[in-house]
């Protein structure tokens, strides 16, 4: 059942998401192949103008894909579970937990798709632009250099690398579930539900900042007094990781509770 729910979530979201991501990749490719080989007095202004326009489109699409993917994920959650479709969704022989899991997974996939299309788009841009200016080797070296640096850092500072990776995973999950939690809180209001969802999101974010600032100051204080900067920095990173994990778990349970016990379809 979980797989089926995810399937239909993706079917619905991909209707709008795939075209936008597709356009994004195509424009990245175009920006690459229209890249002027050289810019000197011989280059026609037309060529530069064309590339400039395409570049502008690429940047616009970058912003658009980010915003649109967010809207698509939010809309899917809202329409499918809290709108009229909720009357169908919640009469499926499926637990609330399964519904939430499906929305988390499909939301994650949608965002991942947006990110991947960005990587491909700019990747194509870089590769084809360099192909045109004959700097292909330099690109290879450039990326090689980055990967080597990361690998060196990781093996030297294994503990940081682990924390970093875990942080990346937790943060992305946290970002998504925080949105769903805010939507559910807003749903409790009798009026202006969407507005209240935004308010909830802002309030939660403020609370998060306050907590992490307090923790940060504690660590800085201890670090200053005890001159344990290195250890304190690592301890701070670990503590932030733990804090975010706890918050994420809290948001998951909060969202589940509201969805299971405080559903109020109109």
């Amino acid at each position: 059942m979980l797989g089926k729910l995810i399937k239909y979530d993706l079917k619905s979201m991909f209707r709008s998401l795939l075209p936008v991501c597709g356009a994004f990749i195509v424009v990245g490719f175009l920006a690459g192949i229209s890249f002027p080989n050289t810019i000197d007095s011989d280059t026609t202004s037309g060529v530069v103008l064309l590339w400039g326009t395409i570049l502008f489109a690429l940047i616009a699409l970058t912003v658009a894909v980010s915003i649109i993917s967010l809207i698509i994920v939010i809309t899917r959650f809202y329409k499918n579970l809290l709108g009229n479709e909720g009357y169908l969704s919640f009469t499926l022989p499926v637990t609330t937990g399964t519904h939430l899991a499906a929305k988390c997974i499909s939301g994650y996939i949608a965002f991942a798709l947006a990110v991947i299309s960005g990587i491909i788009s700019y990747g194509l841009f870089a590769v084809f632009a360099c192909a045109r200016t004959g700097d292909l080797d330099e690109i290879g070296e450039f990326f090689n250099g980055i990967f080597t640096a990361i690998a060196e850092f990781a093996s030297a500072q294994m503990h940081y690398a682990v924390v970093f990776v875990l942080m990346a995973i937790v943060s992305t999950i946290m970002a998504l579930i925080k949105i769903y939690f805010s939507i559910m809180i807003g749903h409790q209001a009798s009026d202006h539900k969407i507005l209240m969802s935004f308010v909830a999101y802002i309030v939660i974010t403020i609370i998060e900042s306050v907590i992490s600032n307090i923790i940060g100051m504690v660590f800085i204080g201890v670090g200053v007094f005890a001159s344990l900067f290195g250890e304190m920095t690592f301890a701070f990173a670990v503590t932030t990781l733990i804090l975010n994990t706890v918050l994420t778990i809290g948001y998951i349970f909060g969202t589940y509770y509201l969805l299971n016990n405080r559903l109020n379809l109109e």
Binding site: S12, N84, G86, Y87, L88, T91, P93, V94, T95
Partner: peptide
């Protein structure tokens, strides 16, 4: 009420509950 009961209950709500697309 549970997924088990939902599999033997058919509901026609008075709301338009089907996806447009």
């Amino acid at each position: 009420p549970s997924p088990e009961t939902k599999s033997i209950v058919s509901y026609l709500p008075d709301k338009d509950s089907l996806p447009d697309w």
